[in-house]
Design a protein around this nucleic acid. Structure first.
Lengths: 249, 249
DNA sequence: GCCGGATTAATTGTCAGACATTAAAATGTA
DNA sequence: TACATTTTAATGTCTGACAATTAATCCGGC
């Protein structure tokens, strides 16, 4: 585990990379303790602050965790789905906003992935998943719910659907996509009538999943996608019209 | 943008979080320059090394980039799909290895996602995508190809299929999943006969995509998934038998 | 007046050493 | 043995300095 003296990169970046490679390659195993900062500084022939910057880089990716006190130090972290999930949501959100991904593209991806889960979910969903879905449907029907709360409930509903597939890898990948889309969804104003339509579709989905009817689940998801995109288009054109009106006034 | 004086968290973690929130919330926009390290140190009432550790954390997530020299500094980075993609592959790989996700679960997730792309890809694939798929199929038929090279070609083939859907979000999500699985795939020893079967299935997929036959594409992917899992089981049981033999000897 | 090279200034990168804080381990004591 | 105290090893933080880099500025020559 050595570093290149005269690379263009920062020393701390090189050191972080060296350690990361060690973790990915399996040289450093879970819960193993890294040498202390001073020892690492000696090994790499750099100062302790430089080592610390490298360790912070790794900590930011949840690759290590640190503990203070005697017999403390930096330990290789067991990366859990939850931690990775948070990072993915942040990253996906930024990707969507910074690259100006259109609502259509994001929506298409989301529902395509969700339909991929549908057959598995119809087959394996537990009563728990069904209960969550029904509970969220009920919440979505409550009057006086803010748009944000409605969207949050929507996310929970779809997560239950995805989790029903009983495949952690799928849940991880997809929940990120679904949650990252929430800021985009929040831009939509949901009228009472559109909420009613969505609740109806959700009910159809829950019924289909309960009946283990994968074809109907997929078909209803397709309808929901179409309706969501239609709603978004209406909102967008309404805004455009309003803008034009203001400009001409 | 303030920090909590007596939280249990590190100061550098708090500062990183404060800045990250600013970026995610849109207070700091792309290519905007952050205050210099000294100024940030004054603002947050901490020392410069602490600020630096915070900035390194953000740099590790590609949220900022730094530039030396006069009029240098830290700038909000436009997160690109490529950078995010690298991170996702690393994270997904570690998730798979550290959480001991079984081959079956990973494989199921991968092909479920891939089938989600199939209809879109059948509809939108360009001649470029088809050419890449054909070229990789040809390579996979070459004798003398190492197992690693065969797997790498397999990844390229499937990426072309996914990219054919013409949806960057899908490509991003899925390419990560496909590539992260490669280490698992590399554990499989491909016999000449199994390679032949896979090449045949790949050919069927390419044909179906070329003919824009989404149903057949999905069906063939299903076959490929089943065959891949069968292969993996054979390898696993062969190893188990060998192990038992060694133990009894 | 304009161009090119030297100078300057601002900023990050790195270092050294010190002290504060934390928490486990060792030690002493009832 | 059980509990309180001390020791110790580690990270967390600070101060101050210097090196390296790069854009802007200045200045001289044409």
């Amino acid at each position: 585990m050595k570093i290149d003296p005269d690379s263009t990169k920062d020393l701390s970046a090189q050191i972080a990379e060296a350690i990361r490679d060690g973790i990915v390659a399996g040289d450093l195993i879970v819960d193993q303790r890294l040498p202390s900062e001073s020892e690492l500084a000696d090994q790499f022939e750099v100062s302790r602050p430089t080592v610390r910057e490298a360790l912070k880089r790794l900590a930011a990716q949840s690759l290590i965790r640190t503990q203070r006190g005697a017999s403390g130090g930096a330990f290789v972290n067991r990366l859990r789905f939850e931690e990775a999930y948070d990072q993915q949501v942040t990253t996906s959100s930024l990707l969507l906003s910074m690259n100006a991904v259109s609502f259509d593209v994001a929506c298409e991806a989301r529902y395509a992935l969700e339909r991929a889960c549908a057959p598995l979910s119809a087959q394996r969903r537990t009563p728990d998943h069904l209960a969550t879905m029904r509970a969220e449907i009920h919440r979505q029907g409550q009057p006086g719910l803010t748009d944000e709360a409605f969207c949050a409930s929507d996310v929970t509903f779809h997560r239950a659907l995805v989790d029903g597939a009983g495949n952690k890898v799928l849940s991880y990948q997809l929940a990120g996509a679904v949650e990252a889309m929430q800021p985009l969804m929040n831009m939509i104003t949901f009228t009472a009538r559109s909420r009613e339509t969505i609740v109806d579709l959700h009910t159809d989905i829950a019924d289909a999943v309960e009946a283990q009817d994968s074809a109907k689940t997929e078909a209803t998801l397709l309808k929901l996608e179409a309706y969501t995109r239609e709603l978004a288009h209406t909102v967008v054109s309404a805004r455009a019209a309003k803008k034009q009106e203001q400009q001409s006034a």
